[in-house]
Design a protein around this nucleic acid. Structure first.
Lengths: 235, 235
DNA sequence: GCCTCGAAAATGTGATCACAAAACAGCGGA
DNA sequence: TCCGCTGTTTTGTGATCACATTTTCGAGGC
């Protein structure tokens, strides 16, 4: 399998990020957002080693802001410095670590969804439906990257509504850590076997304002996705 | 009230950290450990603004490794850049954020304690008892800083045993965020009114290998401490 | 064809410089 | 005594340089 990896970098590719508003953000922040998006959507495979200068020239900036962005990502365990080399790398997941990730995600993400119920609007529900349609379209096209992106958009559109910064950050960190491996697993399985997610039920629960159901469906959704990864890891 | 703050910096004060092993660690890591310890033990008050160059000269290094350490701490929300100024500061806690901190700590720390039961040894229990004695001694002496330090040592001696890196990192991040405010509250209350913690019960539960009791007592301990902070914040 | 070795390139780390923006101190005036 | 202005200092940010270590890779020998 080949990864698009860092070819996405056209000179001055800085403007990506998940939500497009950057305006006067510092270079450091733009670099961070760019890298974080790549990682969350799994466009850099686990074990892949990256380098400051390569990233920097790929993004058209000096190594300095990249160093700070990378430091941040290391703090979130989205990147790691191998102790032998001191060289930069996307971490691989052990079974133990994956289980912890699953537990943490299953704790924080249902809570976020629960809190989002009160703030949910008709407009956001429409956007969620659009996300879900993009997701289904990607599935039928066999477009794993499209699936990753739409799934990410769907979930964090909900989480942002929860008005719970700390929990939101925790969720981001957890996604940063699971993204690369998730992409590998889903890519290996192919879109046909991808989990029958619970997005439809989630949307319906949001529409009826049933907070308990929202929590439950989000829990199921996270559980199913992570369970798939766990099985893949054991083989 | 006065804070010892950064006067603790003697030229080349780098060697602190919580556990003393630094040997060949990079300057960046040493700076990070030094700052993290200061923050966790609340030796820098919330709202206090710090500066890269001040920290750097206080630690006897160039601003460069400090920048990276600070970036890391910002990622953990142990420091923040105020958006107006772009100036560096120890964050203050809103009631909302404090509640999230409490929920997160009450989820992750009992889990860590639970997992530590299997790995607990007679030696570690002895060390825990020593920590608790230092804690009690600090209480009777009215030594708030000593209390903070002993409490930190006690808890993370347990958490390190759990062999759960991800959860351990989450706990560290949460302590980094609560440390400064906790120090203020406990300092204001005075050591006399400090929570009657559950360390004794915890130790007994560890001795008898009762994992369920360990989880429960840790939950109570965290709850009581955070509840105290919550009440203080409301006033 | 395969291995070994050594020069060249690349990497992370730390220090230093340059610059614009913000904070600060001190002075003059009301 | 208090307010407002101005020149100085301090701040974060980004770029560049220097250096030790590691990786890479191609030439030479078997």
């Amino acid at each position: 399998m080949t990864f698009p990896a860092l070819n996405v970098f056209t000179p001055n590719a800085l403007s990506g990020g998940f939500d497009g508003r950057d305006e006067d953000a510092s270079v450091h922040d733009q670099v961070y957002e760019a890298l974080a998006t790549l990682l969350i959507q799994g466009q850099i495979p686990p074990g892949k080693s990256v380098s400051l200068r390569t990233l920097a020239s790929g993004l058209g900036v000096s190594p300095m802001p990249v160093r700070e962005a990378v430091r941040r990502l290391i703090a979130q365990k989205a990147l790691e410095l191998q102790p032998s080399n001191k060289r930069l790398r996307v971490p691989s997941l052990s079974e133990d670590r994956l289980k912890q990730l699953m537990m943490a995600r299953q704790w924080v993400e249902p809570e976020l969804a629960f809190r989002a119920v009160a703030a949910m609007t008709r407009d956001t529900i429409a956007e969620l439906k659009a996300d879900d349609q993009r997701l289904m379209a990607a599935l039928t096209k066999g477009d794993v990257d499209g699936y990753m992106q739409a799934n990410h958009a769907f979930h964090f559109r909900i989480y942002r509504l929860a008005q719970a910064d700390l929990f939101l950050d925790m969720a981001k960190t957890l996604w940063l850590q699971s993204g690369p491996f998730m992409r590998v697993v889903f890519g290996r399985l192919g879109t046909v076997q991808l989990p029958q997610d619970h997005h439809q039920e989630l949307i319906r629960a949001f529409e009826s304002g049933d907070a308990a159901a929202v929590r439950q469906h989000m829990s199921d959704d996270v559980h199913e996705g992570m369970e798939l990864m766990l099985e893949a890891l054991k083989r």
